[in-house]
Design a protein around this nucleic acid. Sequence first.
DNA 1: TTATTATTGTTATATTATAACGTATTATGC
DNA 2: GCATAATACGTTATAATATAACAATAATAA
Lengths: 168, 168
Amino acid sequence: MLTNSRLVHQSHDHERCINAALLCANDLCAEKNARMTTTRESVLRLLWQSYRPLGAYQLQDQLAEMLGKPIAPPTVYRAIEFLLQLGLIHRIHSLNAYIGCPFPNSEHSNLFMICTQCGSAAEVAHNTVNNVLQSTCDKLNFTLQSQSIELFGLCPRCSDNTEVSNHD
Amino acid sequence: MLTNSRLVHQSHDHERCINAALLCANDLCAEKNARMTTTRESVLRLLWQSYRPLGAYQLQDQLAEMLGKPIAPPTVYRAIEFLLQLGLIHRIHSLNAYIGCPFPNSEHSNLFMICTQCGSAAEVAHNTVNNVLQSTCDKLNFTLQSQSIELFGLCPRCSDNTEVSNHD
DNA sequence: TTATTATTGTTATATTATAACGTATTATGC
DNA sequence: GCATAATACGTTATAATATAACAATAATAA
């Protein structure tokens, strides 16, 4: 099982995460002859700012502030599209929002655990899950191409808080 | 495993499916003291017209034609909201579209197999899948509340067609 | 019947996303 | 280096999806 769950829910030196993500992104671009421009890097950085997915128009606002000039929607969506293509970010359909991918290098299929309390989203890649889904598809003669798995609930932190407040 | 996969992909007397769905919906309304109005029943019927999810504005057009009068978006969204609440339909987030639920009576969690070729969506409820997801959540201390699982690929029919055309 | 509640109608607008076209920037071949 | 092509960005307009707010109507209950 591959997951960033612990990082999402425990305090840590997040600057290192951001820097690692940006380095990794640059490597990937070099490898694929793609250009990591200022706009694209800024969007990626913003999506790594927290473990909460951001919508396109939140990104627009923050990007405008970051770059010190007005930014129009197409600019944001182009950067998003680019980063999605490279697998550097993911789209969370149920939220119309986007989030940095913690393991863009390893082939994996997305599964997100989204906290309905704090809005955090942890990504999980789990072979057992994938195998069960694949075999279910096989059984029904469905040729699986891709998937979007979004689980909603309470993250470890918010679960604990709820329990505590239940004892009050 | 509970699924409507065969019905989705094989020809059958679909009128019976529609009628069964409407009867079932009426029962559920009676049971929950909710009103199955003309608008709501029409929307449900439209969503049962095929096994392809419909967007709100497709529904709006078809509903207007069906009722012989112009219909505004809020009317459609209200009916959708009502039917979602009762579990009579589901939302497919990745498509911004809606589809009738084939087993609104049994507690289940949604998993859809969506054909990227023909647009059909089959629903599957599978304990093994749910158990694996639940145990994954347990492992990571995530309190699962609900889920949205959307699998994309080729349905049995389109898979076969692809194979055949590959032999041409 | 009248009061109350639930539903629908209507208008306006918010939110998310893209089309189309022009300009600027970056890479490439000579 | 310079011309050229390819790529990315700027700009304006608009499409597609969804909701807020309030008025009118219909259904139910007292």
